[in-house]
């Protein structure tokens, strides 16, 4: 599904990613762990196409297409979803308006019919219910006045609605209490744990991986993957820390 080959990227001329290679197949959940500043969020942003993140070397293909040649909205229409570490507040734009525009833009890019307001609201309500968010959130401005936990659950509502093939989740567990963590983790399993979907889960902590069991765990340090393994690697890191790997 996703093939990253020798990816180098820089921000403001400063090299951050220094040769990442990673293949993610349908049905797989990959966790990326690593100390602060190792390039985890940069990897997420590069894959989503954030302006200012310059790829200096290497390639990324998604379903055989050159991902790096596409605009962010085109990547989304292909089925890529970025769950933000810090979801952005947008005063004056209602969540419903935003998500209906997004969903219909994706549908029309794929040559599908647009959803009516009624059909959209039914879908949106089901997703909000599943993540224990009040229906009323759809009327509120995007992420404005949401608590940290509500923002993260809101990201999962968006993911459920947009139904992507690949979700890149950047520290979706940060800022969540135990109950919210369970709701979000179960949301990830419900929406993304499917044979035709894949997840790249960026996290610092084992606790999310207890709920969303990864098939592969990679440790990113200094802009490179320094170690890969199965779910047991995350538990080992939780016990022993990154110190030995990064040294």
């Amino acid at each position: 599904m996703l093939k990253i080959d020798n990816l180098h990227a820089a921000v403001d001329g400063k090299p951050i990613l220094k040769g990442i290679s990673l293949a993610i197949n349908a049905g797989e959940i990959h966790a990326i762990m690593g100390p602060n500043g190792s390039g985890k969020s940069t990897l997420a942003y590069v894959l989503a196409g954030r302006p200012g993140y310059e790829v200096t070397e290497g390639s990324v293909t998604f379903e055989g297409r050159d991902l790096l040649a596409l605009e962010p909205h085109e990547r989304a229409a292909l089925g890529i979803f970025l769950g933000f570490q810090y979801p952005v507040e947008i005063p004056g734009v209602s969540t419903a308006q935003f998500l209906r525009t997004a969903l219909n833009a994706q549908r029309s890019a794929r040559g599908e019919a647009e959803l009516s307001a009624g059909d959209f609201l039914r879908l949106a309500r089901a997703q909000a219910d599943a993540l224990a968010l009040p229906q009323e959130m759809m009327k509120r401005a995007v992420n404005v006045g949401f608590s940290g936990g509500e923002k993260k659950r809101g990201e999962m509502v968006q993911m459920g609605l947009l139904d992507p093939a690949l979700a890149i989740l950047d520290e979706t567990d940060s800022g969540l209490d135990i109950d919210a963590l369970r709701v979000v983790g179960e949301g990830i399993n419900r929406i993304m744990r499917k044979p035709d979907k894949a997840v790249l889960l960026i996290t610092h902590y084992q606790r999310l991986l207890d709920i969303v069991e990864p098939d592969f765990v990679h440790v990113l340090a200094g802009g490179r993957i320094v170690r890969s393994g199965g779910a047991e690697l995350a538990r080992e890191l939780e016990r022993e820390g990154y110190a030995e790997l990064v040294a």
Binding site: R50, H73, F84, P87, I90, P91, T101, Q158
Partner: peptide, 20 residues
């Protein structure tokens, strides 16, 4: 970028933010 990462086209994103 947040809007576009969800599939909203750049033109639509400008429109939504200008409307707001």
């Amino acid at each position: 970028f947040y809007l576009e990462s969800r599939g909203v086209t750049p033109a639509q994103a400008r429109g939504l933010l200008t409307r707001a």
